[in-house]
Simulated assay, not measured.
Amino acid sequence: MSISLRIERKSGGEPIEFVKGEIIGFTYNNNSSIKLSAKSPNLAHSLHIQSKIPLHSLPSVIDNADNSNMLYTWATTEYKPDTEDYYRKCNIQIVRNENTIRDITFTHAYVDKYQEQIDTSKEILEFELVLKQKEDQLGKIQYSPQVEPKRTG
C-alpha cells in the first residue's frame, strides 16, 4: 500500500509532493452528520498526515529564493487576506495493489497544525500535518470513489 500527497499553489510553480513511501500514516476526520437537519454550524473536515523523510531528500533553503514549495514554509505562512498561496489544493491518494482505494482533494486547504522532529542519529525528519478545508468551501471537497449516503425509510 502507498500513500501520496500533492500540494499545489494557486499561483503555479513546483508542487510539494510526497510519493516515494514517505507518508506513513493518514487519517481523515469529518465531524458532520449526514442528516442536513442535524448539521452543526461548526463543520470540520481534516486530513491528518504523518511522515518520515530522509534528511538528504529535503530541499535546501537558498537566500533570496522562492522557497514556497517547501512544506515548512507553507506551514509557517501567516494568514493575510491578500496572500494568494495561503490556501492550496491538496490531494491525498491511497493505492493498494495498483488500485486507488481513496482519493481526496481539499481545494482550499490550509495548515491547521504542523509539527516536526529531526532525529540526527537516523538522519530523518518526522512530521505531523493537519490540513483543513476553508469553511465556506466545504462543498468543494472531492472524494473518489464517491460514496452515496444510505437511505433509511
Rank of each mutant, 00 (worst) to 15 (best):
Y86C: 03
L71T: 08
S32V: 13
D85I: 04
K80Q: 13
K39L: 05
R102P: 00
L36P: 03
H56D: 12
G13L: 09
A65G: 05
L43E: 13
T107Y: 05
E78P: 06
V95A: 00
Q133L: 14
V147Y: 05
F127D: 02
D119H: 14
E78T: 11
N64H: 07
S2K: 08
L5D: 10
D119T: 04
V19I: 01
G153M: 10
I92Y: 14
G25S: 04
E128Y: 02
N42H: 14
N99R: 07
V147L: 14
I141P: 08
K80I: 08
A44L: 06
I94M: 05
K134M: 15
K140L: 07
R151P: 04
F18W: 10
N69M: 05
Q146G: 05
L131S: 12
L58I: 05
L138A: 09
W74P: 00
L58A: 04
N99A: 13
R88S: 01
D82Q: 13
E8Q: 13
A38Y: 03
A109L: 03
M1E: 08
R96H: 15
A44R: 10
S33L: 06
S144C: 15
N67I: 01
H108K: 07
L58Q: 14
F26E: 02
N31K: 05
R6L: 03
I24M: 07
K132P: 00
G13I: 14
I7S: 05
L131K: 09
Y110P: 10
Q142G: 08
K35Q: 15
S51H: 10
Y72H: 07
E148S: 14
S121C: 08
L36Y: 10
S144G: 10
T27I: 11
I104T: 06
P59W: 15
R88D: 03
N29R: 00
L55C: 10
M1G: 01
K113V: 05
V95H: 01
E8A: 04
R151E: 13
K39P: 02
K10Q: 15
P41M: 09
L47N: 01
F18L: 05
L5Q: 11
I62V: 14
A38M: 11
G153K: 07
N69W: 11
Y72D: 15
N29D: 07
T100M: 09
E78H: 11
Q117W: 01
N69P: 15
K80C: 02
I7F: 04
V61W: 09
K140I: 10
K122M: 03
E126Y: 13
V19H: 02
K80L: 06
N97M: 04
T105D: 08
N30W: 05
D63W: 10
K39F: 03
E128I: 02
G12V: 02
I16K: 00
N69R: 06
D103I: 14
P41A: 10
H108G: 04
Y143S: 03
S121I: 06
R96A: 15
S4L: 13
D112A: 06
E84I: 10
L5H: 09
D85E: 06
S57A: 13
D103N: 11
S32A: 14
L55P: 01
Q133K: 12
T107G: 01
V95T: 03
N97S: 14
D66E: 03
F106D: 00
H108F: 06
I141N: 13
